[in-house]
């Protein structure tokens, strides 16, 4: 039995709007095991990002508790790094400076070594001194992954990390992520609206309902990596999840 890395108990969250309180997250409870890769899929606007921001510590829930390693989560920490759709690589720093950003307590020479190691790991060797505006979208994503991995986080929070990329680059980045995760195991929480992406990557998939959101269904993806996206098992799972999301098979 694996230990619980992340534990959510009865999380609720609403926002004040001009029409009164808008309940966004309604009573979500879940656990993520140490080293597990959990994907959360849901329709757009259902409150996925709100949920993620609470788990990563950027906003507080109205009620319920969020435990990381059994301790209440109060604020963001380098133990769990958030990677979001639009990216947050600092455009005013070089790739190397970006990768060194979170390495506070290392000596300088050491920082460069770590930065260069992770730059090489994501295939950015030779671009250490480039500025972000000189890189492509895919390379920026790689840099962002490398910056996160460099601080050796225990958890990666990924909020639609690859959805701004084109389909081919999206697929490539998924494989890249799996390759790195095979080398350095992390607990991952992925939020996405892309069902195929979830099946490709995750050990377990939770489907969220429309707003106010709660967990509607859970699927175990019991398929070994590398997964073949065209296999009948994947297709079957995909249809089942889409059905949960209320998307008709014919309309798909």
């Amino acid at each position: 039995m694996r230990t619980n890395k992340i534990e959510l108990k009865n999380i609720r969250k609403g926002f004040n709007s001009n029409k009164g309180l808008l309940q966004v997250v309604e009573d979500v409870s879940l656990t993520v095991g140490d080293g597990e890769f959990v994907a959360i899929v849901g329709p757009s606007g259902c409150g996925k990002s709100t949920l993620m921001n609470m788990i990563a510590g950027f906003t507080q829930s109205d009620s319920g508790s969020i435990l990381i390693d059994g301790a209440p989560r109060t604020k963001p920490s380098p133990k769990g790094i958030l990677i979001s759709q639009h990216g947050s690589i600092f455009p005013w720093l070089t790739v190397q400076q970006n990768l060194m950003f979170g390495l506070n307590d290392h000596p300088r020479a050491d920082k460069q070594g770590v930065a260069d190691h992770y730059a090489a790991m994501v295939g950015l060797k030779g671009f250490e001194n480039s500025y972000p505006h000189e890189l492509s979208g895919g390379m920026l994503k790689r840099a962002e992954l490398a910056r996160a991995f460099a601080v050796k986080p225990e958890i990666l929070y990924m909020d639609e990390p690859f959805s701004a990329l084109d389909a081919l680059m999206n697929l490539r980045m998924r494989n890249e992520l799996l390759r790195i995760l095979a080398e350095e195991r992390h607990t991952v929480m992925l939020i996405t609206h892309d069902v195929e992406e979830a099946i490709h990557l995750a050990d377990r998939i939770m489907v969220l309902s429309p707003r106010p959101t709660k967990i509607q269904a859970t699927f175990i993806v019991d398929l070994p990596h590398p997964r073949k996206l065209t296999s009948p098992e994947v297709q079957e799972l995909r249809v089942a999840i889409l059905h949960e999301l209320g998307v008709d098979r014919n309309a798909d």
Binding site: A56, F58, K75, P76, S77, P78, G80, I81, L82, S84, H86, G87, S88, F90, F101, G102, N104, V151
Partner: peptide
């Protein structure tokens, strides 16, 4: 998003 990233990495005020 940049301020959040900085907050996430837990850097000092000086950094």
């Amino acid at each position: 998003r940049y301020l959040r990233a900085a907050e996430n990495f837990g850097v000092s005020r000086y950094t």
